[in-house]
């Protein structure tokens, strides 16, 4: 029955990867909205690239967190 603990680890790691989908949606949302705004007002687009990258970094960081949770479950628990 010690396999049960391991089962839990693997299941948890797999479930944690679902979080990456959320990050994907988030990054896509940021980039898509930026593109929509940039096409509407191209002159303002260049000044907002920094904001774009910050937004993408924040969204992406959450996906990395879920990846980290998966790694921790696999290796560190």
């Amino acid at each position: 029955m010690e396999n049960l603990g391991q089962l839990g680890q693997y299941l948890g790691a797999g479930l944690a990867c679902i979080g990456m989908a959320g990050a994907a949606v988030g990054v896509g949302n940021v980039a898509g909205n930026y593109l929509a705004g940039a096409l509407r007002n191209p002159s303002a687009a260049a000044s907002q690239t920094a904001t774009l990258f910050i937004g993408m970094a924040f969204a992406e960081a959450l996906g990395i967190f879920s990846f980290l949770v998966a790694l921790l479950l696999l290796f560190a628990v």
């Binding site: 391991q6 693997y10 797999g14 790694l71 696999l74 290796f75």
Partner: peptide, 11 residues
């Protein structure tokens, strides 16, 4: 990828 990594646990 995780499914591959998981194999490394019992090491």
């Amino acid at each position: 990828m995780i499914s591959l990594l998981q194999q490394t646990a019992p090491v």
